[in-house]
């Protein structure tokens, strides 16, 4: 354990944290799946309103995606912006 430098430890933990942040992708996946399923059911019940249903579904899915994208932004910041490392180097 003595060979690990402080910077190396910070980098390793940041990368693990980036991986953990992407667990946020589960929620939007489930949500978008439910929206797509309901959209398919709605088209089956009322094929005439297909255009409206598809556009409403895509809008809802894009909004539901936001929480997953927050996770992605956190992961990208941890990997490429790395606030922890810059704070450590400033100390």
């Amino acid at each position: 354990m003595n060979q690990i430098t402080n910077e190396g430890l910070i980098l390793a933990c940041s990368t693990i944290g980036a991986g953990l942040a992407m667990i946020a992708g589960i929620g939007p996946g489930i949500g978008q799946g439910i929206a797509a399923g309901q959209g398919a059911a709605a088209v089956g019940r009322n094929p005439g309103a297909r255009g409206d249903i598809v556009s409403t579904m895509l809008l809802g899915q894009a909004v539901a995606e936001t929480t997953g994208l927050y996770g992605l932004v956190v992961a990208l910041l941890l990997m490429y912006g790395n606030p922890m490392l810059s704070r450590f180097l400033k100390l």
Binding site: A62, T66, L69, Y70
Partner: peptide
Amino acid sequence: ISMSLRLFGNVMS
């Protein structure tokens, strides 16, 4: 913030 992050995150990914 949510609107900008949504667009940014999608294109960046």
